[in-house]
């Protein structure tokens, strides 16, 4: 029993060390290559390159997976081609572009300014979106299959996720939404694990900054927004438009505040997750980047230690942000479905 615990601990240490070293190595290679190209430090560029979306998946410098570019061009229809067509053999973007578009610093632009198109490309983040979804499907369908034999004690992967599911059900969804919680439970479970998996995958070496992308957080916040307002009962709308137990003059002042409040709630959800994850990545990369700015072993060792500590904190943040997003979604829905009480 004791040795088993020790084993787990050792695994955890090894995991963390590997985790950090991978991360540092990737950042290092990314940086050094850049430095060779331009002969100057561009830590900011390196960080933005990591934070932002891209049309190719760069595992480390030189190891690039081209991703499909999908464009819906007006009057022409769908065009699909590999992003590798936009680069020459040295991974330099081609000036003349391909299929009417050219690549520049993580973005594509039309060669002819007048053409308008909708960009539905499988970018780095979309690629990670697929990975996250696939991972969730595999894990949770596997977990669900273990429940076939209903009265068995949880084993393996099931006992890893069952406490989390019970925690979300009993400590986040149930107390915040109230008696009607079961309708919203599937969404909240999906939401929590999507954010959590996205966060953790983003921390992995060569992981994309998925949950630190504003489009992702915006969609999640919008779903919560629509869910909240579509399930709002009479009591909820009354509190917004005709706040009970206040004088009429106050109602005039409260009304705009309440209406603004309807929109600030999802807005805060969107920004909180985006900022927390993006800021975490920026700070982490900044610490690693410091080594190369100062070019000193002392700073290198110190900033690496800081990066290790930060990475552990980021793991914590990954869980906390998933918890907070889910909890606030539940609180907002809970306010919308709450029955009148006196």
């Amino acid at each position: 029993m004791n040795s088993k615990i020790m084993n787990h601990k050792n695994f955890l240490y090894i995991y963390i060390v590997l985790f950090i070293s991978f991360f540092s190595f990737n950042s290092y290679t990314a940086y050094s290559a850049d430095a060779n190209d331009n002969n100057k430090l561009d830590i900011g560029g390196m960080i933005m390159h990591h934070i932002l979306d891209d049309y190719q998946y760069e595992i480390t410098h030189g190891v690039v997976i081209p991703l499909p570019i999908i464009l819906y061009v007006e009057n022409e229809g769908l065009t699909v081609f590999s992003s590798s067509n936009l680069f020459d053999e040295n991974h330099k973007p081609l000036k003349e572009g391909y299929n009417g578009v050219y690549y520049d610093h993580g973005k594509i632009y039309p060669l002819d300014e007048s053409t308008s198109y909708i960009d539905l490309s499988i970018t780095k983040n979309v690629f990670f979106l697929f990975i996250t979804a696939a991972l969730m499907l595999v894990i949770f369908l596997l977990v669900a299959s273990k429940y076939k034999n209903k009265m068995e004690t949880p084993k393996g992967i099931q006992s890893l996720f069952e406490p989390l599911i019970i925690f979300i059900k009993d400590d986040i969804v149930k107390p915040n939404i109230g008696p009607k919680y079961e309708r919203y439970l599937p969404y909240m479970l999906t939401l929590f694990f999507f954010i959590f998996f996205g966060n953790v995958l983003g921390l992995l070496p060569a992981g994309a900054n998925l949950t630190g992308n504003i489009a992702i957080t915006m969609v999640l916040a919008l779903i919560t927004f629509f869910m909240t307002n579509l399930s709002g009962n009479m009591n909820y709308w009354k509190h917004i438009f005709w706040t009970p137990n206040v004088p009429n003059i106050m109602r005039i002042i409260i009304l705009p505040i309440e209406i603004i409040g309807v929109f600030t709630k999802p807005f805060s959800l969107m920004l909180r997750l985006f900022v927390a994850i993006t800021a975490g990545h920026i700070v982490l990369l900044s610490f690693i980047g410091m080594t190369f700015i100062f070019g000193s072993y002392t700073v290198g060792v110190m900033s690496s230690l800081f990066a290790v500590a930060l990475n552990i904190i980021e793991l914590l943040v990954a869980g906390i942000q998933a918890y907070v997003f889910t909890m606030f979604s539940c609180v907002y829905i809970g306010l919308a479905v709450e029955e009148e009480h006196h």
Binding site: I51, D53, I122, A133, L220
Partner: peptide, 18 residues
């Protein structure tokens, strides 16, 4: 794809996949 402007493609895929 700037930091604060959500990309349409990503919104589409996120909606679809999520």
């Amino acid at each position: 794809m700037d930091l604060l402007t959500p990309g349409t493609g990503l919104i589409f895929w996120q909606l679809l996949i999520f």
